[in-house]
Nucleic acid binder design. Structure first.
Lengths: 213, 213
DNA sequence: CACTTTTCGATGCGGTTGCATCATATCAGC
DNA sequence: GCTGATATGATGCAACCGCATCGAAAAGTG
């Protein structure tokens, strides 16, 4: 028997190189040659791990979407019982919106894949699943807040989650483009969350924002 | 003096071909050769009209963003005095969200440009301007509704507009990917608009949606 | 140690890309 | 009707693309 190789870990390693290149050189940066070089392997290895380039891209996309959803889940699992639903939802939305500087990489990669997915159905399917997961996560959080009495129980959690999803998605792409919002993204999110709360104090300006970071 | 050519109209004609190709064959479809063929001209003409490919793309993007903002403005200008602010805002948001089948073209083109813009600053600037225009338009509509007494006057119009912008942006990209929402996009928009109204009836389910279309 | 099976990395191939070049066609002014 | 500036479109070019091929290297087994 010949050399034994852990293909799965190698695929992950290559996928990481794919993401690096898309991040640094845009959607077109992920050529087979450059990916191989970035991963520190030969082109032949890349071709052995993935039958085609599209398969490679699909694998990388699957990984990054799972990682992002996992980050959202982490936010909850780590502190579900201790924190309030409001704090939890705020933190989760901030994480998912990919607006922090250290999340620019993920944001750029997702934008590239989104555009590509308009032409490659398999990529679109992966993104649809990711969005459905995110929406279900948000709906769960809202229902959780309704159980704890923090959120109004006359709300349709599905409708609210389905509203937060595109909001988060839009915040990502706007932040990525360097959009200069008239109001900080954090205030946008807290403003929306305030609308869900049991006793809406409805400040015309959220006063809490000045105390953050 | 030699032949006289209306360069501006020719640039517009070529830009239209660029959009057609991006729409039909994805972000990579806009090669110089294919653009020339689609426009029914030779490659030399395209090269004379635009010094570089990026300049061609920038021109096309400028055109399409201006067209979309104009569509939003039209919605208002045509019926500003007659319609209520609620109706006006609803129609404008639907137009801007690019969720109708006949708007898939614009949505696809914008998605492609958004991804490209992460690597090409000049494109990002054009998109930033477009988003700023859209936000200002929404803010104006909200203030208009406040003047007519339809919207709560304790709202921060800028905050609300800055919230609607990413919402609309996210709806576009979700619709483009074929996301199957648990709740129709129209209900999401009307749900948000209801939150702006003076007398929030707050139905857990918007009853109005069944009567539409 | 020799053998077999898998991996490796380099090279080749057809095709395409954006851009440069250049002979030819086309028209306004004399 | 000539002239010369401009527009045109075909062709060339170097680089790059994804993918296929193949000899050489490697490693577990008899």
């Amino acid at each position: 028997m010949p050399k034994q190789v852990d293909y799965e870990s190698r695929r992950r390693h290559i996928a990481e190189a794919v993401c690096d290149l898309i991040d640094r050189h845009g959607p077109e940066g992920a050529t087979l040659r450059d990916v191989a070089q970035q991963a520190g392997v030969s082109m032949g290895v890349v071709q052995r791990c993935f039958a085609t380039k599209d398969e490679m891209l699909a694998f990388a996309l699957q990984r990054i979407t799972e990682r992002i959803t996992a980050q959202g889940q982490e936010e909850i699992g780590a502190s579900a019982a201790k924190e309030s639903a409001v704090t939890l939802l705020t933190a989760t939305l901030r994480t998912l919106a990919l607006i922090e500087p250290h999340q620019r990489r993920d944001a750029r990669i997702l934008a590239a894949f989104t555009a590509h997915a308009t032409a490659i159905p398999s990529l679109a399917e992966i993104l649809r699943e990711a969005h459905a997961r995110t929406r279900d996560l948000l709906a769960w959080l809202i229902r959780y807040g309704q159980r704890t009495g923090e959120f109004r129980d006359d709300l349709d959690a599905d409708l609210e989650a389905e509203t937060l999803l595109p909001l988060v998605e839009g915040l990502t792409s706007l932040a990525l483009l360097g959009h200069r919002p008239a109001v900080p993204a954090h205030d946008i999110l807290t403003g929306r969350i305030d609308g869900l709360r049991m006793r809406p104090s409805r400040p015309s300006r959220p006063a809490s924002s000045t105390a953050i970071t």
